[in-house]
Write a protein that binds this DNA or RNA. Structure first.
Lengths: 167, 167
DNA sequence: TTGAATTTTCAAAATTTTCTGAAAATATTT
DNA sequence: AAATATTTTCAGAAAATTTTGAAAATTCAA
């Protein structure tokens, strides 16, 4: 397999998967492109490489920056803005986990807490509802804690060690 | 808060979140409805409750069954099919984790493995690419293993104990 | 069998999401 | 300050996804 082909395949798979993640295809493809690029790229280069419009590139670069997984880089003597991806994949994984937790988990935990606080219903049906809500609350808390635990660990050596043990 | 209102809020939040998960809104709403329902429901009741078409209900019930998180129930003396949700939330969480792993993680691991096997490129750029690919491979494996570990644990007491410790 | 009840399918319609491209805003150079 | 380069915005277009609803298929009772 050629390097060119390998890169394209990776970018393509990454982008396709994103769709199932609820993240848009282009955003992932730009991320993949930057991740694989040894040097930072500007908007025109990304447009050209992925054959997409300037507006699209701009919007998604902004999103990627808000996730904290790419950085803007100002090159001396260059007028254009260049972008480079965070290359520490463990850090990228933590940032993605943090963002997904924020988007996927926190809202349901908040809703459930609010319902638990405010629901006054002592009928049989009400009690059953409370039970389910409490169960879901447990699972959510557990998941949240597990993610936090991974996200917060700034040292990656522990995780790396864990990985080696199981390899 | 009334029971009715609480249930509606939960179903609504659950459905809205699903969108960000890459899972469709209706599928989640049907799941939430069944999860909160003390008795099993048939297609007409679901159509009526969520104000959606028969085809939509049918399709999503099938999807939910393929995830293993709802069951078909044939009531004696009833012609219609009834559906009931798996109420053991830890089991539901494991089934969802398993399905998401299959959809989100496995394809990227497979692509990467294939690229690792087939790429022959010893240029500087090729080596850098290999490095990134290997890093991503590590993170994916780690995540896959962590999920497996949770998913495979058929006993939930350990997890429950863990939860209590942190509560 | 026949026919009524129920479920399934799927083409077309509706909705939602993403993308484009050109105009507006901002930044930099001369 | 004017000209030029670059980035940002956003309304409308395009694409993707979801939903509908009616016809076809299936199931079951008589």
């Amino acid at each position: 397999m050629e390097l060119r082909e390998a890169k394209d395949r990776f970018i393509h798979t990454w982008g396709t998967l994103a769709t199932q993640w609820g993240i848009n295809r282009t955003m992932s493809q730009i991320h993949a492109l930057l991740l694989l690029s040894p040097k930072s790229l500007n908007a025109d280069e990304i447009m050209d490489e992925l054959q997409i419009s300037r507006g699209n590139v701009n919007m998604n670069l902004r999103d990627l920056m808000s996730w904290g997984i790419i950085y803007k880089q100002l090159l001396p003597g260059e007028r254009k803005e260049y972008f480079i991806a965070e290359k520490d994949i463990w850090k990228v994984a933590r940032l993605i986990a943090r963002e997904r937790k924020k988007r996927e988990l926190t809202p349901i935990v908040d809703t459930i807490d609010d319902i638990k606080k405010n629901l006054k219903d002592n009928t049989e049906e009400g009690k059953e509802f409370q039970k389910i809500i409490n169960d879901i609350s447990s699972v959510s808390s557990f998941t949240e804690m597990t993610l936090d635990h991974i996200v917060k660990s700034e040292e990656s050596w522990l995780i790396n060690t864990f990985l080696k043990v199981f390899k």
